[in-house]
Amino acid sequence: MECSYFDAGLCLSCTHLAVPYAEQLAAKERHCRSLLSGHPGLEWLPPVPSPGAGFRNKAKMVVGGTAQEPTIGILDTEGQGVDLRRCGLCSPGLLASFPVLGEFISRANLTPYDVPRRRGELKYLIVTESPDGELMVRLVLRSKALVGRIRKNLPALLQALPQLKVVSVNLHPEHKATVEGQTEILLTRQSTLRMRVNDVDLHLRPQSFFQTNTEIAAELYRQGRDWVRELAPASVWDLYCGVGGFALHCAGPGREVTGIETSREAIASARMSAREAGIDGMSFEAGDATAFALGSPEVPELVIVNPPRRGIGPDLCGWLESSPVRHVLYSSCNAETLAKDLAAMPSLTPRRARVLDMFPQSGHYEAMVLLERA
């Protein structure tokens, strides 16, 4: 991928951009194999490549400059806006939306937040595109001051961007290095973005997490479904289930599937997907994955874990190690913590592994491991 922003030193986020893609993918697999080298019987499936450009379905863009000349991108070291409207990582649909959103900012006179001076209102645009080309836009504001202005100008935005289906305002009053706050104000009748992945319809609410690379997410869920179908467990837990990607793909006749996730928004989305699909034997609950496992009187035959970068941690590792769970499907975005967690569960032997390149042009990737009780 060629990038004028990278060449000019304006954005260096793609740390591996100068490395040919085939070398990037090979290096990621070597890194994962090295971390899991203590498991010599592990069968490695071929790594799954990603398109090197245009793969991101979500963009978290800082808004800088002025209302009449806004920048949509990042901030430089002095807190000034750097416009990245032509970022090669973003999907074509995202790229097409940025000029329209820039015009909306100017027309509605939405003053960007000035980080060094701590004044202004509009902090971020968070834009997500579905596989069908529909969009969700979230405007992150410091306060409610501009909400009325946004509502007034929203009909014109929806007319200019007909693929835009969900619009919300997120309130983030604090001056801190986080992207969003707790309060969400929905501005459209439609509240979820339909994410068609393989043959499953997932629903994404404004504050729900979804993988940023739809193509690799589809491969991830297909691989999980294949392994689960082969093992044919009667009961499955999907811990850290998000909007239910793994759970909904792994459902089947006579199989009880339970999804656990801290985000109530994500759980509402998962329940909606299961209800629309008419799938029996599924339940989703909002809660902590570790607390759920430790407090449950029942134990499933198979557990899926898809934790954040910190991994599942010692308590859940300890529970899995001492439990009668026969198989664990571990999907990880951080092979360092994956290796640490596997070492804490010696009774569960890694049988198969696969690297999926969720994040081209960087050193990050997704790794999936299937474990079996010895």
Rank of each mutant, 00 (worst) to 15 (best):
S323N: 03
P346N: 12
T15C: 12
E134D: 11
H364L: 13
T111L: 15
F98Q: 01
S322W: 07
T183S: 11
L187P: 01
R310M: 15
S273C: 05
L35R: 12
D357M: 05
V228W: 03
D132G: 13
S143L: 05
A108D: 06
G64F: 07
P20K: 10
D238C: 05
L135P: 00
E2Y: 14
L141S: 03
A344Y: 02
V167G: 00
P99W: 09
E23S: 09
R117G: 11
Q24A: 05
A277N: 01
T214H: 08
Q211L: 07
R352K: 04
L42V: 01
S235P: 08
M1D: 10
D201L: 06
S235A: 14
I216G: 06
F6P: 07
T212A: 14
V257W: 03
Y124N: 07
T183M: 10
E69S: 06
V200Y: 01
T349K: 06
E215L: 05
R229G: 13
S34Y: 00
E276C: 08
G244P: 12
R138C: 10
H31Y: 13
R271S: 14
A339L: 04
P308T: 15
L36N: 03
S332R: 08
E366N: 11
V127D: 11
Y113S: 04
R271Q: 15
A374C: 10
A277C: 01
R118L: 12
A289V: 06
E174A: 08
A251R: 07
D280N: 09
A335Y: 13
L158D: 12
A145K: 15
S191N: 14
A8F: 05
L17A: 05
L45P: 04
P206H: 02
L122A: 12
M345V: 02
V299A: 15
N57A: 01
T192C: 12
R255K: 02
G181E: 10
A217F: 10
N198P: 00
V197F: 05
K176W: 00
E43A: 12
E78N: 08
G93E: 07
R326P: 02
Y365H: 14
S168L: 00
S50Y: 10
C11S: 06
V169Y: 00
L135G: 03
L94K: 04
V169R: 01
M61P: 00
R56I: 05
P324L: 07
